[in-house]
């Protein structure tokens, strides 16, 4: 792990609740990073904020990764908006 990843970027995304932030964090975490010597992403959550910490060999690598993570977060948030707390509901 001697390779240095000089470019970094942090995303902080507020959710409605700490539980939602935790769910988002757990949903994103399992997928492995394909090129670990070029990119690293760390997900963490603190109260209702999800933090995604990117570090990579170039800003291009970071941009691609951020765009992908944001796409995934969009799906997660849409899921929460539609389904959170509605497991007893009969949808119409």
């Amino acid at each position: 792990m001697a390779t240095s990843l000089p470019y970094t970027l942090n995303l902080s995304i507020p959710f409605e609740s700490a539980r939602q932030a935790e769910i988002a964090c757990k949903t994103l975490s399992p997928d492995p990073i394909l090129k670990v010597n070029e990119l690293n992403v760390k997900y963490s959550h603190d109260s209702n904020t999800l933090t995604c910490a990117f570090s990579g060999v170039s800003d291009r690598v970071i941009r691609v990764a951020v765009s992908n993570v944001i796409d995934n977060i969009k799906t997660i948030i849409e899921c929460m908006d539609e389904f959170d707390g509605k497991e007893d509901e009969l949808f119409q």
């Binding site: 769910i23 757990k26 949903t27 994103l28 799906t75």
Partner: peptide, 9 residues
């Protein structure tokens, strides 16, 4: 991603 989120919700 949707499956994981819904499963936790």
């Amino acid at each position: 991603i949707a499956a994981r989120t819904l499963s936790q919700l």
